[in-house]
Amino acid sequence: MQVLGIYYYWVFAILLMIGFYAVIAKLNLVKKLIGLTLFQAAVFLLYIAMGKVEGGTAPIYGASAAVFSSPLPQVLILTAIVVGISTTALGLGIVVRIKEEYGSIQEDEIQEIDRR
């Protein structure tokens, strides 16, 4: 069961591709951003999954358990989540400005307006 045994990587890959598809194929800018968020979330899962140790608990100093999950990926991903949120917030901010200026958040319509 080698292939299914690493199912979390499958989740990562599928989620990544769903997000990537939305980024590329969707014309609605908000949907694109949702895709981008999914895309990033998939990578967060990759990191969290790699740090997990079978049967390990939260790495808290002084706890009785002998097996810990690796804390470093979690710390890293905490940072990455902050980065991701900032990106999404900025992206949404830009979409709001686009809506104000162009009256649309459809990529093709915006291109049409600019071409005129």
Partner: peptide, 15 residues
């Protein structure tokens, strides 16, 4: 026109 440009920049940059 900077806005759609920067949105594209943001998308591709983040990817």
């Amino acid at each position: 026109r900077a806005l759609p440009a920067v949105f594209k920049y943001l998308m591709m940059g983040t990817v």
